[in-house]
Design a binder for these strands. Structure first.
Length: 491
RNA sequence: GUCUCCUUCGUCUAGUGGUUAGGACACCGGGUUUUCAUCCCGGCAACGGGGGUUCGACUCCCCCAGGAGAUGCCA
């Protein structure tokens, strides 16, 4: 039987890094096995349902380049793939369970349930439903119905015995039935199913062969097995994935930094880097390789290399991966990625001029290795396109020197730079070195004032390259301005 | 409270009875260099604790501790 796996998010929030890792592992597993990857939207919580979340799901998948074999807008004969469109199905199966004696109607109000929970907490007792409606008589049931109370359907968890299932990663998972949360709700009073019912029904109907989900689902594993048994269905194979944690060892959340994929996208991460990095959370290939393209992972992914322990998300390492992938980009491609950030800051126009594009192309080799994130391009390149913001006169002055000496340096620089285009970079450097010796300063001190004068900052791309890009006229102009600034400060 | 899972450098991990316990990120030093970055070289740093099993345990078993997760008409 060929592999069929699914990713089944609920559109209640933005796609989270942890969820996406689960999606990726399912996707890679399907691909590596020549199986099918199915996307199923679990929108049974109408309270928290959110249209944007659904759009975000699609956007995220598109950005990462993950395509589902079956799912919304792509029927594979097992649809629909959106649970709200399967509404009737769940009612039918819930009723089936009631009829076969595996489920029952419960009329307890949420007030009663809340009070119950509160009391249990006070008395430090184990929590859970007290099975109040489990053995209602027909009369009682009809009385409740007459009062117009909408019942829920609960699952009749066996009071005794043990439920066992095999987890591919974790091995045998065993749980006493008495430790399974008492009689969970299967069908809510609004007629929608809960996760437990919907997921079992759909996984069965969609012929899912393997369930790969985060370890936070382990506790409900036995319940699902019981459900399969109650229906007389064969359960799929399980594989519970290690969780993704924040720096403090807690479940990854907002306070650890970006957690939704769209945030990473906005902050200028590349999808290649994100995919590569998160694939290495809880999974590894061997001890010498950690760079993988999506295509490679589709081929190399194996369950055997999965790790059991939770993994801490390390932003620093992702940053490093991102820098690596940026450097691997072809110039043209990188420019396209950079453009939106440049445009947002009005560094280049909405439709860049040929001149701007030419400058962009020319500056790429200088910028590329300095980028960790796409938006890093902004502070790095601004001086080439716009007049520089004011800088302090002090910044012009190299360490251990004074304003007078700096003026002297700048004047010498100006003279030599003026011939820059004529004599070329190498010759200019030679001349500058000679001059530096004459003035008894280091080459660095000779150049720092110019750097600040033309870029407005002590850190910048290589100086000669910057001058070439800026043009000699602007360069001289900015040097002059720096000299004037120092003179006025000095007097 | 109850149940469950997990445990190798700070972090991600390799390792499947005999290794100087390997790599990567981070960090620290050094080199290249006109600043920054890149790049190169080097360094720091781990088998949670206690019992077994064994000639021999990071590797197998048990206990403890610690961490995490679940305990909803959320998924």
């Amino acid at each position: 039987m060929s592999v069929r796996v699914r990713y089944a998010p609920s559109p209640t929030g933005l796609q989270h890094i942890g969820g996406v890792r689960t999606a990726l592992f399912n996707y890679f597993f399907a691909r590596s096995q020549g199986g099918a990857f199915i996307l199923r939207v679990e929108d049974t919580d109408r309270e928290r349902y959110n249209d944007q979340a659904l759009q975000d799901l699609y956007d995220t998948f598109e950005w990462l380049g993950i395509e589902w074999d079956e799912g919304p807008n792509k029927d594979g004969g097992y649809g629909p793939y959106v649970q709200s469109e399967r509404f009737d199905l769940y009612t039918r199966y819930a009723e089936q369970l009631v009829e076969s004696g595996h489920g029952y109607y419960c009329f307890c109000s949420s007030e009663r349930l809340d009070a119950l929970r509160e009391q249990q907490k006070q008395e430090k007792q184990g929590q859970g439903y007290d099975r109040h409606c489990r053995n209602l008589t027909n009369d009682q049931r009809e009385e409740y119905l007459r009062q117009g109370i909408k019942p829920v359907v609960r699952f009749k968890v066996p009071l005794e015995g043990t439920t066992v299932f095999e987890d591919i990663l974790l091995g045998e998972m065993k749980k006493k039935n008495k430790d399974i949360p008492a009689d969970p709700v299967l069908l809510k009073s609004d007629g929608f199913p809960t996760y437990h019912l919907a997921n079992v029904v759909d996984d069965h109907l969609m012929a899912i062969t393997h369930i790969m989900r985060a370890q936070e689902w382990i506790p409900s594993g036995p319940l699902h097995i019981l459900l399969y048994e109650a229906f007389g269905w064969e359960p799929p194979q399980y594989c519970h994935l290690p969780m993704v944690m924040g720096k403090d060892g807690q479940k990854l959340s907002k306070r650890h930094g970006a957690t939704s994929v769209i945030e990473f996208r906005r902050q200028g991460y590349l999808p290649e880097a994100v995919i590569n990095y998160i694939s290495l959370l809880g999974w590894s290939y061997d001890d010498k390789r950690e760079f993988f393209t999506k295509d490679e992972l589709e081929e190399l992914f194996v369950l055997e290399k999965l790790n059991k322990a939770p993994a801490v998300f390390d932003y620093k390492k992702l940053e490093w991966f991102n820098g690596q992938y940026i450097r691997e980009k072809k110039d043209e491609e990188l420019i396209e990625l950079l453009l939106p950030y440049l445009q947002k800051e009005n560094i280049v126009g909405t439709t860049p001029t040929n001149e701007e594009m030419a400058k962009l192309r020319e500056m790429m080799p200088l910028m590329k290795e300095r980028l960790h994130f796409l938006p890093d391009i902004v502070p790095l390149s601004r001086f080439l396109f716009q007049e520089i913001e004011g800088y302090e006169a002090d910044e012009l002055i190299p360490k251990k020197l004074d304003a007078a000496k700096t003026i002297e340096i700048l004047q010498a620089d100006r003279e030599l730079m003026a011939k820059f285009e004529l004599v070329g970079e190498e010759r200019t450097e030679e001349l500058l070195r000679q001059k530096a010796e004459e003035l008894e300063v280091k080459l660095g001190a000779m150049l720092m004032p110019v750097r600040v004068a033309i870029t407005g900052s002590r850190t910048s791309p290589p100086l000669f390259g910057s001058i070439r890009l800026l043009g000699i006229d602007k360069t001289l102009e900015r040097i002059d301005r720096a000299i004037t600034l120092l003179q006025s400060e000095d007097s």
